[in-house]
Amino acid sequence: MAVEERLFSLVLALVATETGLTKAEVLSTVQGYRQRYQNGGDNSSLERQFERDKDDVRELGIPLETIEPPDDPGSNHNLRYRIPKGLYDLPSDITFTPDELMVLKLAAAVWREGSLSAESRRALTKLGSLGVESSDPVLGYAPSLRARESSFEPLSKAMDRGQVVAFRYLKPGETAPRRRRVAPHAVVLHDGRWHLFATDQDVAAKRTFLLSRIVGQVVTLPGQTFKQDGDGMGQQALAELDELWNASLAEVDVVPGSDAAVRLGKRQTSVATVGDRISLHYTDLNILADELAGFGPEVLVQSPPALRQAVISRLTGVRDAHDVQDPRGTS
């Protein structure tokens, strides 16, 4: 029997029951389980299957509830499971116009890969049940977002589940990664880069991390969970990054007509430019230094001094590593 058939039967049975079904009732009566159920025998593998299925159903946003028996609290044996129909159904006053559906399709297509792409498609499938046909899409127009950092998926999952995670973080300006233990609150895209907003458990304070500077695996710490503060964390993280961006200003000179002049010129926010000097806001000095180093002799950094130094050390490092006298590389 196909997995989706068992899951479908489980959802139907748990929606249909008012009082809930015990685990034994599910395993002995619901399609997909009952065929493998052994009356009075060992059903441990079937029980593990049921646990996994519950997780799968909940991941779809289906409110699968556990009810403790009032006369026997804490008893694992007599827990009852159900899906309250009122919480399952999309509220009936939520409707979408053909134009709105067209915009939602475009929003879903923004994610081209990864689990957010799959989840966007699933949301569109659910929207499809409303029977609204969308307006014609805009042709020749394909905005997309990517999260190429491998930490993106485990972090956003841990965030949803309220799990504390650990990872090695190479802080800008430091040379060796350090292990961090954090409670993730929000993952935000700011100035083209993904950031994690989290509580650093070791100092009990909110910190922002760049996903691109997380080294290696993100691991969840067994048994360490936390309660999410709820809505608004994403906007708070963006507001703090905006503040940092506004407060940090670099001045660079560019060679007229060069790639740097054209590209950086479009990014500058200050109208007051003198000659070929461009002012740039930034959130992370090392990230800006990487980008400016890429422009080679097209850019000369004037300030701040730390940025100037960071660009010089990148350029001399690349020069030395590619010295033709040493064809094996120096690193």
């Binding site: 915009v103 879903a108 957010l116 699933r122 929207l127 949803d160």
Partner: peptide, 28 residues
């Protein structure tokens, strides 16, 4: 028909994926 007759709700992540996509589009 049995048991269900309405559209299911979105999961937290499904809604978040579309909301983030909309935030991106809204800057255009």
């Amino acid at each position: 028909l049995v048991a269900i007759d309405d559209a299911p709700r979105f999961s937290a992540r499904e809604a978040a994926a579309l909301i983030a996509g909309l935030q991106y589009l809204s800057s255009l």
